[in-house]
């Protein structure tokens, strides 16, 4: 049995547009190298067996599970993680929408969800609810019941298409109680304390 220190790999990897030289035991996964060698702990893990989607990152624009690729395979690949989503200090519309709708509760599945959603919207800016659900179906979340995530992605998609839309009132306040005067007007509500992105 080879010792854990017997084989190591050194290579240049490109993460979020930044190239860096890293050295690591050859059997280490991209997940491990991102978190441990690159100090990019935004990428999380929930099973390390490809079963939960938490560790999703983009490789050449496509979501993959970083727990099931070796970092040694990453030469010449373009890796994107949650840390690369912001534009300077501005949140990506997906980040802003998920933050504003409380779609990141514990926030642990959020990086993987964001990356899978970004890959989808980059390719299909018009993705509808069904497509969003299909594209995200490999990402488990235990907090939200998924609705706020889907609503957030829809909202972000609309804004990325240049549509100036507010989040619907029932997304923010719930459905009007039957027989009651109805919810407050959402336009006056200022969902977002600080509207980034």
């Amino acid at each position: 049995m080879p010792n854990a220190l017997s084989a190591f790999t050194s290579l240049l990897i490109e993460v979020n547009g930044e190239r860096r030289a890293v050295s690591f035991p050859t059997h280490h996964t991209l997940l491990e190298v991102l978190r441990e060698e690159c100090a990019l702990t935004g990428t999380k893990h929930g099973c390390e067996l490809g079963e939960c989607g938490t560790c999703a990152v983009l490789v050449d624009g496509r979501p993959v599970l970083s727990c099931l690729v070796l970092a040694a395979e990453m030469e010449g690949k373009r890796i994107e993680t949650v840390e690369g989503l912001t534009d300077g200090n501005e949140l990506h519309p997906l980040q802003a929408a998920l933050a504003d709708l409380g779609a990141a509760q514990c926030g642990y599945c959020t990086p993987g969800i964001l990356m899978a959603a970004k890959a989808l919207l980059d390719e299909e800016p018009e993705a509808d609810r069904k497509r969003i659900e299909q594209a995200l179906a490999g990402n488990l979340c235990r907090c939200t019941g998924y609705h706020k995530i889907v609503q957030g992605i829809e909202w972000a998609a609309a804004r990325m298409r240049g549509e100036d839309v507010a989040a619907p009132a029932d997304v923010l306040y719930g459905a009007p109680e039957p027989g009651s005067p109805g919810p407050p007007d959402s336009s006056s509500s200022e969902t977002t304390e600080r509207q980034d992105g």
């Binding site: 049995m1 854990a4 220190l5 084989a7 050859t26 059997h27 893990h45 390390e48 067996l49 395979e73």
Partner: peptide
């Protein structure tokens, strides 16, 4: 974290 055991890796 569940991790891989060590091995030699080749990418011909």
């Amino acid at each position: 974290m569940l991790r891989l055991p060590a091995f030699e890796f080749h990418q011909p």
